[in-house]
């Protein structure tokens, strides 16, 4: 499964990376480390009718995206 590591990057980069990876196939996972990126990616998925679930880990969030 494709994974994108967007930790430490500020918006809009995490969303841009996610969009690019989504266009290359699903399912996929994204790592982000702040709430702004998490919210923006979840909002992107909602608008694109993608199913997104996230888990809060120790120092980051793992978002799983599928159709």
């Amino acid at each position: 499964m494709k994974t994108v590591d967007a930790r430490g990057l500020s918006c809009p980069e995490p969303v841009l990376m996610t969009r690019k990876a989504v266009s290359q196939g699903l399912p996929m996972e994204v790592y982000v480390d702040h709430e702004v990126a998490l919210e923006n990616i979840l909002r992107f998925c909602y608008k694109e009718n993608l199913k997104a679930e996230f888990q809060k880990k120790e120092e980051y969030y793992l978002i799983h995206i599928e159709k």
Binding site: C11, P12, V15, L16, E39, N40, F44, K47
Partner: peptide, 19 residues
Amino acid sequence: TRLCTVGGIRDAVMFRDFH
């Protein structure tokens, strides 16, 4: 809310996200 004037126009143009 993350209110941002630059982000407002940027997200609208890049992602059609008008939040």
